[in-house]
Design a protein around this nucleic acid. Structure first.
Lengths: 339, 339
DNA sequence: AGATATTACACAATCGATTGTGTGAAAATT
DNA sequence: AATTTTCACACAATCGATTGTGTAATATCT
């Protein structure tokens, strides 16, 4: 292309990169010409030759969810800093779509792939192309331990334990749980942490105060409707996400229960809404952006060959319990913008 | 590659696409072999040759915002259906970053570009590579009329007019406004719609009840603090987004004002939080996903050559006013899950 | 049977940047 | 002055799929 300015393509290519074998005057000349004719190198051709696309693939369930979009934001921030593009698809929690997405990503020859698994997924052969070719593959947040890859997640067990422990410490005696799909490891761990905390305090475990669902706002309402009508209703609830916790809380209030005095509520994720809702929701701070950043760093380290270890690592972030008004008896209903 | 099975690359390439000039038996043979050796075509090479990447670029300000992530979700849904990848970058509302992003997108040779402008942006030369090469370029939501491209947005004037009109109809007599950065066309139009509604009802316009900001939650609080301490405080507010509306509302409540009886509040966007907060927030339903879908459709139509017209079109979505409790005097504070 | 049409595939160029190797010319060395 | 070293650049192959053209082999027709 730019060889219409007298020199060979070789020279142009090398001049633009300050190659040692090109004369200084030529470099200046080429750069000037390139600038004035608005020349931009074709990344496609470069990718083909270098077998490197400078693109990282990301597969998530739904882009428009607070947690997921923060995750992506973190990934993009890191990738962009290192000159990598981010290609995104959403599996919509469908195993089939996820399969296709993985294939698409592979065909696009992304340099690495970050995945937050679809809810449906319970087999993992579709990741074989990446595994077998030793392409960087990192699972973020929604991971599976049935496949041997790098994983970045939070310590769900610990977080759930903290949350439940907190409710116990606040004097609640019959703590229920809104549990998620047990297919996903994260929700299993949250249930386990909850159960273990109860047992450690020699409190009875009652399956009747555990409600399984997909944790939507409506599921929270349904959960409240179900659990609060039991003979022995719970006097507190630990929900596996904020959305369902708020559904639960609002239904309980409509039934005339006072939060937190009669029923304590703890959520999970620290969605923006949790600090805006009144009473403010006690929840687990989930470092979504950090997880995204870390996942991206791992992938990029592998891509650049910086990372030595071939054995997959699992990075587990510690979470923080954010104690707010929904779980502390005697709290004011509104105000006190302490987040 | 797959020519290690007896035939030429030509034949393989054509067999996989059921080219007419390839024998049926050969096609079957090639496909079988390809399947069993897990052959996947290299999209990069294909892109280079066909000058088509099957990728659409998306530049937004911040990925992790309810509105933006929904926009992206819509874009991805359409692109994915037509076999296109979505490459995303976030400008972080920086003009400089947006510039770089556009260049990156161009170098990646995306087949089309969808942009929601950075708040800072007030020049548009960086889009020249797309304009001059006649690559599809569509602005979504945060558009500018200083550059001649396709645009997809909502009728901000009409929405603001409706919102203000509604407040007037509810008997509020001194309606304030939380206005956004006037750099952006959308916030100008919302201000105009607000002003026009007032004038049409022969109500006085008072700059003292208009508060300009970036519309964060804190900006909403500041706005309330400022406006409610004026000699003639507003008895209602129309905010240019939900986030600031909620900040305003909560601060007002903390000051002891009753919403909606003493002060009416209307937001903009229909963020998820708006129907969860109590009192539920009257707001404008902003079809973010639809805007994303439409923008993607326009781009893809141009890419595939379906679209005849060369003259840029502006698609303006009508919005709906969602009347909830924050603006209807005598409404109950909580409950009534009518969204 | 000979001529024409059809079928089935291979050849070779191409997309645009990259990179190892080759080669003149200028500079440095003995 | 002859030789070695350094410098500055061009040649040509390559990445892998695509595509217009060429050409055998088979089928169809008169």
């Amino acid at each position: 292309m730019a060889r219409a300015l007298g020199v060979s393509a070789t020279t142009v290519s090398r001049a633009l990169k300050d190659h040692y074998s090109i004369g200084k005057s030529t470099i200046r000349k080429v750069k000037k010409k390139a600038a004035e004719m608005g020349y931009e190198p074709n990344a496609i051709a470069s990718s083909l030759r270098k077998k490197k696309t400078n693109a990282i693939g990301v597969i998530v369930s739904h882009i428009n969810r607070p947690f997921i979009s923060s995750l992506i934001s973190g990934i993009e921030a890191v990738c962009s800093r290192y000159g990598y593009n981010v290609i995104i698809t959403q599996s919509l929690d469908s195993y089939k779509k996820e399969r296709e997405d993985v294939k698409t990503m592979f065909n696009s020859r992304v340099d690495g792939l970050i995945v937050s698994l679809a809810a449906e997924t319970d087999r993992y052969e579709h990741f074989d192309p990446f595994i077998k070719n030793n392409y960087p593959l990192v699972f973020a947040d929604r991971v599976s331990f049935e496949i041997d890859t790098d994983k970045v997640l939070v310590d769900n067990f610990d977080a759930a334990y903290m949350a439940t422990n907190h409710l116990i410490g606040q004097g609640y005696r019959r703590i229920g749980h809104l549990a998620g799909v047990q297919q996903r490891h994260m929700y299993q761990k949250r249930l386990e942490g909850y159960l273990t905390a109860l047992r450690d305090h020699r409190m009875p475990v009652d399956e009747n105060v555990i409600h399984y669902s997909k944790l939507s706002y409506e599921d929270g309402i349904n959960g409240a409707e179900t659990l609060l009508n039991r003979d022995l209703r719970p006097d507190a609830i630990f929900a596996s996400n904020d959305t369902s916790a708020i559904g639960f809380m609002q239904y309980a209030e409509e039934c005339g229960y006072s939060i937190p005095d009669e029923i304590g509520v703890v959520g999970f994720n620290n969605d923006p809404v949790s600090s805006i809702i009144r009473p403010q929701l006690t929840t687990i701070d989930h470092p979504a952006v950090e997880i995204g950043k870390k996942a991206a760093e791992i992938v990029l380290d592998k891509v650049s060959g910086k990372s030595q270890t071939q054995i997959p690592q699992t990075i587990s972030f510690k979470t923080k319990l954010l104690i707010r008004n929904s779980s502390v008896k005697g709290s004011p209903r509104g105000g006190s913008n302490a987040s």
